[in-house]
């Protein structure tokens, strides 16, 4: 009797253990399928910091909002960052609000340290996972293409209801995985 109860409870636990990763997947799949697509230009990162294990550390170039009244957005506060596009079609942020915006694309994020009238954002994309062997080549390509002058590295992000999921990392107009494969063939 007791062992049946324990096994019953265990089955319940097993379901919860499966549900957590499952819900993580379905939420992101939904965003990738139905979310709005944006391109964010990436900025160079400290080369020693770029690869920790198997991912490219990302830094978004337009990761801040210029706004008066910085004091309302102290460090670590949850905010809605409204997305707008520049003339080249890359995304940036135009405004911050504390309540959910209506009719505009936005990302839910946390504020970082303000600097003057600039409020930096702690965006929910800071890494792009790669296969271990592909890492060094990807690092070289990413660093070259995120430098000043030759800045054509960007990430494609899908956004739905403030939730953002990375779709891909592009360097010189190509997916980084394809670029690494080409490099390897040379």
């Amino acid at each position: 009797m007791k062992s049946k109860l324990i096994i019953g409870l265990f089955l319940l636990l097993a379901l919860v253990q499966i549900y957590v990763p499952f819900s993580m997947i379905t939420k992101r799949e939904d965003v990738l399928k139905h979310g709005e697509q944006f391109k964010f230009k990436t900025a160079p990162v400290d080369p020693y910091d770029a690869f920790r294990g198997r991912y490219v550390a990302l830094r978004i170039e337009n990761d801040h909002v210029i706004k008066q009244g910085v004091q309302d957005f102290d460090n670590g506060r949850s905010v809605y960052a409204i997305i707008d596009l520049d003339d080249q079609g890359f995304a940036g942020f135009s405004d911050l609000t504390l309540s959910r915006p209506i009719g505009k694309a936005y990302i839910k994020a946390k504020t970082g340290y303000p600097s003057g009238s600039k409020i930096y954002l702690d965006l929910p994309f800071d890494r792009y996972y790669m296969e271990e062997k592909a890492a060094p080549a990807a690092e070289a390509a990413y660093r070259k293409h995120s430098q000043q002058g030759e800045q054509d590295a960007y990430i494609v992000v899908r956004v739905k209801d403030g939730f953002a999921v990375i779709e891909g990392l592009y360097v010189a107009g190509q997916r980084i995985e394809d670029l690494v494969k080409q490099e390897n063939r040379k």
Binding site: V20, P21, M24, I25, R28, R54, Y55, P124, F125, D126, R127, Y128, Y129, V165, I166
Partner: peptide
């Protein structure tokens, strides 16, 4: 959970 985080580039 780590595998899911990797697949979807979760921060």
């Amino acid at each position: 959970i780590a595998l899911v985080c990797q697949t979807y580039n979760i921060p």
